[in-house]
């Protein structure tokens, strides 16, 4: 990519060889476990337990997945995670824009102080217990709101959005709009937001993935099974033998139970990561863009 040259010196040829070996190594280290998980989840339990499965399925079957799709808890978790992610992300975007736009206006009196107020919460966070007590006092424990409100604004994302508004919307355009008598609400909704679709897409992705993958908050704030997120259900299934045994019982005779539990674990991992991995190729390039905007100096 950098500076092309027609004849390659010996030194550089060695570099290219080493470079490719390095990349191959990176590729294998990352891909091998993922492939192994996928392959193990569709192999026969006995082959798996004998350690024969590496990168190709042995005794291909989908029994484990058939069990998973009959697990009520997993399906509830799936549904809840989708709901929390959608609702949470909408709240995130609205709140982040409402904060980012005013903070991007240069002659907004109090801008500096307000920015400081936001940034301070990024570098100083209240301990766990006062945070928990607060959520409890607000009556949010074991409700969807404990999942979507406490993290309504990520200050990091707020700064990305504010920086974007500042850098990409020309001042002359804003001035012209003001001279035409447009007020701030009008400028924000009719001028700034339509020009900021790319950054909004990036923020949606950042927030949505964070919601989908979060575990700890759901673990401490949710207590009823009907409200659990997918991550909590996955964790419970993988760490408690009972849940897996119940699933394994339905498929095989007792002698093979331990082996079936192993296959189920792999299948649960695949099942859990499927939505994000499936969307991944489509969203990947937006993430890269987000990182670049984020690393810009404002």
């Amino acid at each position: 990519m950098n500076g092309k040259k027609k004849t390659i010196s010996r030194e550089n040829r060695i570099f290219y060889i080493c470079n490719n070996i390095l990349l191959l190594l990176a590729f294998v280290i990352v891909a091998a476990p993922l492939i192994n998980v996928l392959v193990s989840s569709v192999s026969s339990p006995s082959a798996l337990i004998r350690g024969q499965v590496t990168f190709w399925p042995i005794g291909f079957n989908l029994d484990a997945y058939k069990q998973i799709f009959q697990s009520r808890l997993l399906l509830i978790g799936y549904k809840n995670s989708i709901v929390y992610t959608v609702v949470g992300t909408i709240i995130n975007i609205v709140m982040t824009v409402l904060a980012a736009y005013p903070l991007s206006v240069k002659d907004f009196v109090g801008r500096k102080a307000l920015t400081g107020l936001f940034v301070f919460t990024m570098i100083f966070t209240a301990p766990l217990i006062p945070t928990y007590i607060n959520i409890e006092q607000l009556g949010l424990v074991d409700t969807i709101w404990a999942m979507v409100l406490p993290g309504a604004i990520s200050v990091y994302n707020l700064i990305i959005a504010r920086t974007f508004f500042q850098n990409t919307i020309p001042d002359e355009m804003l001035e012209a709009a003001r001279l035409d008598g447009a007020d701030d609400i009008c400028i924000m909704t009719r001028l700034v937001l339509p020009l900021s679709k790319s950054i909004l897409a990036v923020l949606v992705l950042y927030y949505a993935v964070a919601h989908w993958n979060t575990y700890f908050d759901a673990y401490i704030y949710l207590s009823s099974e009907e409200k659990f997120t997918l991550q909590v259900v996955l964790r419970n299934i993988m760490s408690t033998a009972a849940a897996l045994q119940e699933m394994a019982d339905a498929t095989v005779d007792q002698s093979n139970r331990a082996a079936m539990i192993e296959v189920l674990k792999y299948a649960v991992i695949v099942f859990g990561s499927l939505p994000v991995i499936a969307l991944y190729p489509a969203v990947q390039k937006h993430f890269v863009k987000g990182v670049m905007i984020g690393s810009l100096k404002g």
Partner: peptide
């Protein structure tokens, strides 16, 4: 490929690690 694990939740990364 190297970017992909970032999208896998911590719960599942630990699941993979355990396996």
């Amino acid at each position: 490929v190297t970017y992909m694990p970032y999208f896998i939740s911590t719960v599942l990364v630990i699941g993979i690690l355990n396996q």
